[in-house]
Amino acid sequence: MIPIEIKDLSAGYDGRAVFSNVNLELRDRDFLAVIGPNGGGKTTLFKVILGLINPMSGTVKVFGEEPVVSARKIGYVPQNENLDSEYPISAREVVLMGMRSKKGIRPFYSKEDKEAAERAMEYAEVIDFADSRISKLSGGQRQRVYLARALAPEPKILMLDEPTASLDPSMKDCTYDILRKLNKDGVAIMLITHDMSSISHDVKRVACMNHRLIVNDAPEITQEMIALGFHCVPELVHIGSCDCGGHNHG
């Protein structure tokens, strides 16, 4: 079954469409980057797929079902800046929250939940600071904690909203290393990014969104995409050696 299937989709806010007639498939083991200027509709597209807003027309199917039913099968990593870093919570507790989608309402976490969270933390390389309060972690470490939360219930689809925004080059490389590993393990990945260096190195396909969507089945930005989405050269980022930083950066 196709992980995500979008047909003739239009969506927006207060009756005004942000994008229209979008057609897209996220295939099994896909690794798709969505690029495009701010305000072009990338985040709105994510919200429709996740069932957070309803489409104005067209359809979205996640494993053949409506997003409202099946969005919990998707692992979602929000932008780091959108969450309250002063909240009194440890990395481990954040990751355990990911298990809610699998088990439903319960006052306590089971041994099984805790083991799943432990595995996700090892995968996302956050186990060394599992018991640290999130406010004491660096931006990159916090981002990987949210990644571990998304991975804890072992989703088949992972969606990330600018996972490397405001990260230093080594942290970006580390994040992409984890994503490549996940993709090899069979997880279909869809991410919004402004980091053009990742396109050729890491992803399998590229889509450009600016009120409409163009998809290229190769990891290359086409002339048509540049004409649609960019009037200047997109951000290029240095690719350095990976240092995931097991220590806190206060």
Binding site: L50, L52, A71, R72, P78, D84, Y87, S101, R149
Partner: peptide, 13 residues
């Protein structure tokens, strides 16, 4: 979950 991240809470069901 609600007080930490309402969007994730909603996605969790």
């Amino acid at each position: 979950a609600l007080t930490f991240d309402e969007t994730h809470a909603k996605l969790s069901g």
